[in-house]
């Protein structure tokens, strides 16, 4: 048996092991992305139905006497609506291997929480005024 013949099975074994480790790491990374994406989408799904409240409140405010205060509330509702639409437009579900993945997902979570806060505040203020 030559040296090459001796090393061949060993090299094969090492290659398969490395491949398995790589696949496992890929799988782990994918699962992590899925989980973080799901967490972000939960926040989105929690407030997205409230877009209908924004529409209804805006309509109700437009029907009452227009004052500086009511116009300001309408503007806040419109800004909240726009914040959500804008967030959805810029958010892209990342793929494994994306540079700065953790930072991106953390930033997105902060952003969608800001959108939630903006929407809930605008809705509450409008409800109080009607």
């Amino acid at each position: 048996m030559t040296k090459t013949q001796y090393f061949r099975p060993f090299l094969l074994l090492v290659s398969i092991s490395l491949l398995l480790v790589y696949c496992k790491q890929e799988d782990k990374a994918l699962k992590k992305i899925e989980q973080r994406h799901a967490e972000i989408m939960i926040i989105h799904d929690e407030v997205m139905p409230k877009m209908s409240d924004i529409y209804k409140l805006k309509k109700a405010l437009k029907e009452i006497e227009q004052t500086e205060a009511s116009l300001k509330l309408i503007k806040e509702l419109e800004d909240a609506d726009e914040a959500m639409m804008s967030w959805m437009h810029q958010y892209k579900k990342p793929t494994p291997g994306t540079k700065g993945l953790d930072n991106y997902l953390n930033d997105q979570e902060v952003l969608i929480k800001e959108v939630r806060s903006k929407m809930l505040t605008a809705i509450e203020k409008a409800k109080d005024a009607i």
């Binding site: 799904d45 997205m48 139905p49 409230k50 877009m51 209908s52 529409y55």
Partner: peptide, 24 residues
């Protein structure tokens, strides 16, 4: 568009209020 969706197509009425998509 919102007016048509809501008033003419009754999208809000057809939808459960807590649906994740929102009425529109």
């Amino acid at each position: 568009i919102m007016e048509i969706a809501n008033e003419d197509y009754f999208i809000a009425a057809l939808e459960a209020p807590d649906a994740p998509g929102g009425f529109d």
